[in-house]
Design a protein around this nucleic acid. Structure first.
Lengths: 335, 335
DNA sequence: TTGTACGCGTTATCAA
DNA sequence: TTGATAACGCGTACAA
């Protein structure tokens, strides 16, 4: 039935103008600037647009305005439930502001990250860059070239930082108060800023708490990394382990169950992030709750502000606190 | 330091051409059609482009080519882990084909869905529409206007269908073989095609298996919906319940644990989807495994093929099988 | 092989 | 209030 070759995506403003008997400029105004045009002209144009099923071309708009009203969210691993909360946070804010968002996965690879950032520069107004793995120099360079807000990476420019360092210290205090004197930290990716923060904070805090901290790893921050971390914990004679993240902690719990090592009676386990599933396991996982959705929303806000203000948005920093969620996986030291 | 007002996004092709001492068209060819230009000219242009950090404008490209190289994935609820896998499946295929993808959440609302689809028409080449909630008429209309591939909705046009109906029947057979004679189906959203498929398949199969099927619900397909479903199961004297999805099943397990009703000794529970977490709960959740990532990939393939072939892509249908994963939440009928 | 000129759909500027 | 016209950045006929 349709005589157009399908890919010519619908009627254009010109069609609407023609059919309304007005000029394209008038049609444009009627649709985008209510009030700047004769009342009945506007009504007619709107009616025709509706009738024709007119949808403005985002590309053409972007071309004239210089802005695409699109921002990208770049994460290291879309399979990690941690980032889904972030996606939601970013999305909700963006949607309210009339923006679209694209999602990019860098697969924990620095090369992919650089490639993705380069491509994005030509197609979006800005980027929320979560837990970047690239050099500080690269990240800084990107941020100078176009609007970038980082999450969980302390580089110059607007950024959202989550104080998981403080959170894991609370976890360590919690363990110390339960009598643990030898605690393992099962580390995550070496390129992860978060990992370094957590590790260093734990090392610094251990002395004052009269706790010996044993750093193990790095482990892949997924469930598959857990078994090795569990075994290393026992090998080093630790009575508790703090895992880089919850996925790793799940794997640790798997391995302990498999070995017949009971949690928390024989060993305590603490995770980090409080992702989906922490209250599904038995015992429930004690973990450092990270407000990812808020972080995503905050990052989106920062980016939107930056876009509205041009380069003069300043380099605002939002710091979000964490809190320890105590469930069943931690208990008194075995004796 | 930078003297440009920040939002003029980088150098244009014109800048590259000027600095290379060639015409824009030549620069264009040098960068997009390797070989169609003098070898050293090409080298020079490429070098200059590199030096300037030139990135082509996606908007301008889209305007001339008519294609944005962007497709959208529209899902009812981004918080549902079920869709995580689908996102990954879609994304991996799209990335390989050089496409970008945007994610849209319709929040289980028909209105949002219609709004989103209308907006998308002007900004993407096509859409993967997962589990649409709108009328068949609306979905059909969209599919006629621009390339749409649906997942889990049996409407005309290219589509991916997952045979969860077959899966839940297997689950029912499994329960029947364990001696269950009265089984509840805790239903999902009334507008969900999947729900209807599952419900009707179960009703049809129950007779032949000598099982009485009690349909309860609808419940919100999230963990919060579970408690009511659990109570209804017991109220109706059923010894087993098949939940519309795993999230609902998790909530059902919560409630049974709270009531002190042991699973599977007193009551068996079956979920659907096999999302993240089904092997985290204890006992592990017996569930119908849905190949979401494959579904996403298949949908992306269908869409890419459609885009490559114009309207003549035909309405290919991909049907994906499911399988029953038996874990600890199902057992013999109590006596 | 390379350059010129036009068009894609929209918004902004300037006249009328 | 409305209309004509010039951009925006790129691809691509067509001409040289």
């Amino acid at each position: 039935m349709s005589d157009r070759p399908d890919l010519g995506r619908g009627p254009t403003l010109r069609d609407v103008a023609l059919r309304s008997g007005v000029a394209v400029s008038t049609a444009s105004r009627a649709l985008t600037r209510p009030g700047r045009v004769g009342a009945q002209t506007e009504a007619r144009v709107r009616a025709v647009a509706e009738e024709l099923g007119y949808v403005p071309s985002a590309s053409a708009r972007a071309l004239t305005s210089g802005r695409t009203r699109t921002v990208a969210l770049v994460v290291p691993d879309t399979a990690n439930p941690l980032f889904f909360g972030m996606v939601r946070g970013v999305q909700s804010r963006l949607r309210d502001a009339g923006f679209v968002h694209v999602l990019a996965d860098t697969e924990e690879s620095v090369e992919r990250e650089e490639q993705v950032m380069a491509e994005l520069r030509g197609s979006v107004d800005g980027v929320v860059l979560a837990a970047p793995r690239a050099d500080e120099a690269s990240v800084t360079a990107w941020a100078e070239e176009f609007p970038v807000v980082t999450v969980n990476r302390d580089v110059p420019g607007p950024r959202v930082l989550i104080d998981t360092a403080g959170g894991v210290v609370h976890a360590l205090q919690h363990l110390a108060s339960l009598g643990h004197r030898r605690v393992a930290y099962a580390g995550g990716p070496r390129r992860s800023w978060s990992d370094r923060q957590r590790r260093e904070a734990l090392i610094a805090a251990a002395g004052g708490l009269d706790v010996e901290l044993v750093v193990t790893g790095p482990y892949v921050p997924r469930r598959e990394g857990g078994p090795a971390a569990a075994d290393a914990t026992l090998l080093h004679g630790c009575s508790a382990v703090i895992a880089f993240n919850d996925l790793l902690a799940f794997g640790i719990l798997d391995r302990f169950a498999e070995r017949g090592t009971t949690v928390p009676d024989e060993v305590s386990v603490v995770g980090c992030d409080d992702i989906f599933g922490t209250d599904l396991v038995r015992p429930g996982l004690t973990t450092v709750a990270v407000p990812v959705e808020r972080a995503g929303a905050a990052a989106a806000d920062l980016l939107l502000r930056r876009l509205a203000a041009g380069a003069r948005g300043g380099a605002r920093v939002v710091e979000l606190p964490t809190h320890l969620v105590v469930r069943g996986s931690t208990g008194s030291v075995p004796r």
